[in-house]
Amino acid sequence: MIPDFALYCMLNTLAVIIISPLFVSLIKKVKAWTQGRQGPSVFQTYYTLAKLLSKEVIYSRNASWIMRVTPYVNIAAILTASLFVPLIYVTDSVGGIGNIILFLYLLVLARFFMALAGLDAGCSFGGMGSSREMSISAIIEPTTIIVFAALAFVFKSLNIFDMVLVSSATGTPVTPTLILIGISLFIILIVETSRLPVDNPETHLELTMIHEGMILEQSGRNLALMELSAAIKQTLLMALIINLIIPFGLATSLSLVALGIALCVFVIKGTVLAGVIGLFESSMAKTRFFRLPSLFIMGFFFSTLVIIIEVFA
């Protein structure tokens, strides 16, 4: 069990680091196609990260140790969280890894440090991004907790590994209520990865930035780490949706064939989901900031409905 799990840790981390930039580029490509242009190549994010890793890091004169520590805290928290979500191979969890609440709060830790770093440089754009990001995070948190509670009610466990094992044993959505939870998880994905209608990830206007505003002052290697952690976070949330709702093809045994098939199936499913996200983003404009809570109420409502259904039926 322990060697299995150690192998799982290595496989999962490698898979997540390699696959995440691909999904980022795919979403950009889909958005470009809907706008009638070709868009950057599918491997552009890899080239960008490689370029950034070789560039110089510059710190503002007003920056403190927070600015220097944040990219590393960020990538460490997100990579730890990546151990919690099985992408291609699932096994029994060891030592409490896989608790969904801990997963959520690892992501929140990363976001907290990102907000502090946004304030740290003393520039008003970073402060604006941090303030907006923290307000959105405060408003979406009850919804996220309720969605995870609904997942726990459906799968009868708080451990993501148990949930994925149950799900992959049946091969199809375990109950129809999972479709409702899927909608809520999709809304959470949009919010956590700062996509339209919450925030435009491709904006170049600082007054409209939320996530981009917080990483505005980062440069070089630090910026590469922040972009990679945002990409990995997106992949983890996509994997949560994919592996809980459409789980066929997941490997439960450590054979090369099963792992290869699971990897291909995951990339294909991820590509489809990236296409759906891209189409969803292209179909709407950024909503006014103070109207965002109304959007989140929908996710909250679906999950509460699922909990009521599961408890009373």
């Binding site: 304030l119 520039c123 008003s124 970073g126 303030s131 307000s135 103070f290 809570p293």
Partner: peptide
């Protein structure tokens, strides 16, 4: 000193409006 830094009141303004 940085005078363009966000103040505490400004930071909490979105929550206060929500």
């Amino acid at each position: 000193p940085s005078i363009t830094e966000y103040t505490g009141h400004g930071f909490s303004e979105p929550i206060v409006t929500f």
